[in-house]
Design a protein around this nucleic acid. Structure first.
Length: 552
RNA sequence: GCCCUCGUAGCUCAGGGGAUAGAGCACAGGAUUCCUAAUCCUGGUGCCGCAGGUUCGAAUCCUGCCGGGGGCACCA
């Protein structure tokens, strides 16, 4: 927020220069005000002179000098402004400006860092979308956490967020699931059965079959139709999935069943719409979608010669429904195995007259599973995956959420349950939470020692002289901007790295300086500082769905 | 063969046009009569995969190559 003050002063200065004819307005909006990497380069730094020099073909340091001349009048905000290196303009902000952040944060409380930049825009985040063939695996876990934390960040920035889970409980996969369940059922009854060659081998199938034995005894022994078995399996598996999601703190607004697209006639609708617009033709008894009209290499089949649609058609119809439900922004979280379907769906969206720019696809790389140092190919069918529930059992919710948020979506993750168990104790989530708990402990101590707290406005903040204190304030001041960036870039890992940095600065400070001192004024000032710091930590943890313990 | 994506310290990963490229882990040593040692302090490491190009300036953008992963069906 203080960066924005600096930026606006610089903007005025730039416009003044334009008015005076010193430089043209070609550089407008191109220069930046940033936090320099190294000490001695000020609190903020701008490349404005370097940029204008390029445009005006002048010496950057001379341009910088003209800028500084105009700026120097702003004495309240800056201690000094320097020209450095090839022509950077470095701003040294008055310490009192930083100190002023404390009462500001205290006044904002749980609102500090949150904003309304989303202007209540309706956003749908679609994620997980696993078909009910088995419990959620590690890979789904990553997607679940990624999607949910993106949704949370968007909520924190004033978006109206809707979480949706899209699934398909029809088709071959589900039939095999039903057959697998029946086979296990017959086994449990001691009957002869043939387990399907590509059946689901997981232990959970046995549990489902057992539940059928418990409920129906052997009455299903001669059922040739697998529907009963399939439905029981689906019911069980969905119950498991939603309870796993709930354990992770994730609740969906809606589960959207692909089958309803057929029941409501939307599939046929889409085909006839595409046909009307001339994007569809028949060949070899199949119906083709002219994706070549959208720059693709070849056309794609949307209805097979058997009369069944390919997966593309419902995907397109589903996206049409998303648009028709009047969302301003559609976010799809997919694993990298869905890469190929994205262009087809986008072409469909465009063909139907909707704006593909409203769709953002977040692709995340896979989690690769290793056992005993060897990579294992995960498969629900072969049941050699690690479930999210197992992970939650050994590691706990906060550590799991943190673990999956730590890496940006497009980096691959290696996963080893033994390693994760061992490392759960050293998960950085505890480092951050411990920072929060430590501050709470200081505040408790203060109360126990009978330190009387005064109103924040009457505290003499100028007693905060230590560089560590000012640095903490500087980091705290970037919190709102960091959240905006994390939200709009759909990058929850930015919050994680910020919180680790903030905690690190605090732990150092804690070890070097005492908050509770013999000096009454200084104690008050430091208590105010750590109290506002606690607010920032708490808000940060809250926003991405982590707890902020008061004791550890 | 074509498309997408990643390649940064021994390992796991940040940084994604800006000045001297960072953190954690691992390794070694040290800190607690005093607010929680789940903490802190000190110690060094990099042809930023390779080669070109764009730019005042490239780990960052573009092209090609190499390597890992994913995809390229009238499977989902």
């Amino acid at each position: 927020m203080i960066r924005l003050q600096v930026k606006s002063v610089l903007d005025q200065c730039f416009l003044q220069g334009v008015a005076e004819g010193i430089w043209s307005d070609a550089g407008e909006g191109k220069y930046t005000v940033e936090l320099p990497k190294h000490e001695g380069q000020g609190d903020f730094s701008s490349n404005i002179a370097l940029l204008l020099a390029g445009i005006e073909k002048q010496n950057p340091r001379q341009i910088a000098a003209k800028i500084v001349e105009k700026l120097i009048l702003e004495t309240e905000l800056f201690d000094r402004v320097e020209i450095a290196g090839p022509g950077f303009v470095n701003f040294f902000v008055n310490s009192n400006v930083w100190r002023g952040l404390i009462p500001h944060i205290m006044a904002e409380g749980s609102q500090y860092g949150r904003s309304e930049i989303g202007s209540d825009r309706k956003v749908m985040v679609e994620f997980v979308s696993a078909n009910p063939t088995g419990p959620l695996s590690i890979g789904h876990g990553r997607q679940a956490i990624l999607g949910d934390s993106i949704a949370r960040l968007l909520e924190a920035t004033g978006h109206n967020v809707y979480r949706e889970y899209y699934y398909n409980d029809a088709g071959r996969q589900m039939r095999v699931l039903g057959e697998s369940t029946r086979a296990r059922y017959l086994e449990l009854l001691g009957e002869k059965s043939e387990f399907p060659e590509d059946g689901y081998q997981g232990e959970y199938i046995v549990e489902i079959s057992q539940s059928l034995v418990d409920e129906k005894g052997d009455s299903l022994k001669d059922h040739r139709d697998v529907t009963v078995f399939k439905e029981q399996a689906e019911k069980f598996i969905f119950k498991g999935i939603s309870s796993t999601l709930k354990r992770m703190g994730i609740v969906f607004d809606n589960y959207y069943n692909e089958r309803s697209l057929y029941d409501d006639g939307y599939i046929d609708d889409v085909v006839s719409q595409l046909r009307e617009k001339g994007y569809v033709y028949e060949k070899d008894n199949a119906v083709w979608f002219k994706t070549t009209e959208f720059g693709h290499e070849k056309d794609r089949v949307i209805i097979k010669s058997s009369g069944e649609p390919t997966y593309r058609l419902p995907d397109i119809a589903y996206h049409r429904e998303k648009f028709r439900r009047d969302f301003d922004w559609l976010i799809d979280i997919f694993g990298s195995d869905h890469i190929a379907t994205v262009p087809d769906v986008m072409a469909g969206v465009e063909a139907l007259g909707y704006d593909p720019a409203k769709v953002t696809v977040v692709l995340h790389q896979f989690v690769t599973l290793t056992r005993d140092g060897k990579q294992v190919k995960m498969s629900t069918r072969k049941a050699n995956f690690i479930t999210v529930d197992e992970l939650l059992d050994v590691v706990g919710v906060d550590a799991v959420r943190f673990f999956f948020m730590m890496r940006k979506a497009d980096s691959q993750m290696e996963f080893d349950l033994a390693l994760a168990t061992r490392q759960s104790q050293e998960n950085p989530v505890y480092y951050v939470q411990y920072g929060h708990a430590r501050i709470c402990s200081i505040l408790r101590q203060a109360a126990e020692r009978g330190v009387e707290r005064v109103v924040v406005d009457t505290v003499d903040m100028s007693l905060l002289q230590e560089p560590e204190e000012l640095n903490l304030l500087k980091t705290m001041s970037t919190f709102p901007t960091m959240i905006e960036n994390a939200a709009l870039e759909l990058a929850p890992h930015k919050m994680i790295f910020y919180l680790i940095e903030l905690a690190s600065q605090f732990h150092s400070y804690y070890n070097k300086h005492k908050v509770l001192t013999d000096n009454v004024g200084l104690t008050q000032a430091r208590l105010s500082l750590v109290e506002s710091l606690r607010v920032v930590m708490k808000n940060g943890l809250d926003i991405i769905g982590l707890t902020a313990p008061e004791k550890m």
